[in-house]
Computed example of a mutant assay.
Amino acid sequence: MMPELGVIEGYFGRAWSWKERRDVIDRLAPAGYAFFHYAPKIDGKLRREWRQLHDDAETQNLQQFARHCAARHMRSGIGLTPYGAHLDFDRSARQELKAKIAHLDTIGIDDLVILFDDMRGDFVDLAERQAEIVDCAIGSSKASRFFMCPSYYSDDPLLDRVFGQRPESYLEKLGKLLDPAISVYWTGEEICSREFSIGHLASVAERLGRKPSLWDNYPVNDGPRMSNHLHLRSFTGRPAAVGPYLAHHAINPASQPILSCIPALTLPSCYAKDDAYSYSSEFLNAATNIGGAEFALMLQRDLHALEDRGRLGIAAEVTGFCRKYAAVDTPAAREIIDWLTGGYAITGEMLRTQ
C-alpha cells in the first residue's frame, strides 16, 4: 500500500523561484505526488518574523502557487513556525497567531502545517504548550487538513544536544493532547534516516496514537557539509512494506529543484514495484525523464564524483565538469554547474539566522 506522497519544502539556504516550484509540481504531480507544503527556512515571515504578514506581491505569489497546485490536482499547504510563542502564549500572542492564520486563509491553502522544529524544547510542559498553540491555530483556520512537526521529530540524540534534553514522555503526551485528525511529521530514527523499518514506525505510531507522517530528509542537502554533495541516487531503504504504517510520505527536496526530481521520481516506483524495484534502472529512467538520454548516461557515470566525493573532493576537476555539462545545456545540467561554482553553498550563519 502506497501512502499519500508529497513534498515538504523545508530546507535552509537559497530559495527556489516560483517558476522552479511550478516546474517541480508539473513534474511530480503526474508521478503520483498529492501535496506540496511550502515552508522554506528563508521565508522569515513564516519563521522568526512570523508576526509580520506577507506583502501584496508575496501574497499574490502564494495565491498563484495554491492555484497552480489545484490545477495539477495537488493539495497546497503552508508551514508556519510560531517562533517564541511557546515561551509565553499570552493573549497578545494568541491574537497575533489568529491574525496570521486569517492572512494565510486568504491564500487559499488546503493544508496548514504548524512547525516547532529548530527551537529549544527543554520545558517540562512542552507538549502542553505546543498543543495549546496548535489548537488555537486550527480553530482559527479555514484549511481542511492539519499537520504539525514536534520539536523532537526523531529519536536522534543530536536533537537533545542542540535544542536541550527532550521532556520525558514528550511524544506520548503530545499524541494524547492533539486532535486525532492532526497529522504529525516524523523523520525516523535519525534526522536524516538512511532507512525505515516497520518496527520503528509501529513504535512511533503507538507513542503518538496515530500513524506518523514521514518527513523524509532525502534528497535534502542543506547543511554546510551536505551542500557540497548532490543527492541524486534513487530512493533505497524505503521498502513498500512500510507503506501501511505511514499516514503520508513527504520528501524534503534538495536545494536544486530540478535535480531533486530525479530521486523524487523513483519513490513512487519504490512502493509500486516492491520486490521488483531496481534502484539503478529507476535512476536512469528518472534522469532520462528530467534531462534526456545523453544527460542521464553522463550523470550515471559521474554519480560517485558528484554525490560521494562532492564539490570539494573534485575541486581540481571543476572546470572540466563545468565544460562537460555546459555542452548538454539542460535546466538540470545548469543546476550542476551552479552547484559546482558555489551557488548553492550553505553556511553556518544561514542555519543560525533563517
Rank of each mutant, 00 (worst) to 15 (best):
N221C: 03
R161E: 12
P239F: 13
L159S: 02
D216S: 15
L246S: 09
P180R: 07
L201I: 05
S213T: 08
E206D: 12
P212M: 06
Q165R: 11
F235E: 10
I182R: 12
L214M: 15
A181M: 09
L246D: 10
L230H: 04
R233M: 11
E189K: 02
K173G: 09
S154D: 03
P239Y: 13
L246P: 06
S197I: 02
I251K: 08
H200M: 05
H229C: 12
N217F: 11
A250G: 10
L171D: 01
I198K: 13
A181D: 12
R166H: 08
L174Q: 09
N217T: 07
A241C: 07
H229A: 13
L232D: 15
V242Y: 01
A247T: 07
E190H: 07
D155L: 10
H248D: 14
T236Q: 14
L174D: 04
S227K: 10
D179P: 06
R161M: 11
Y170C: 01
S183F: 12
R233H: 11
S183T: 09
F163H: 07
Y245G: 01
I182S: 09
N228S: 08
R210Q: 15
D216P: 10
G164M: 00
A240N: 07
L174G: 08
V242F: 02
L159A: 05
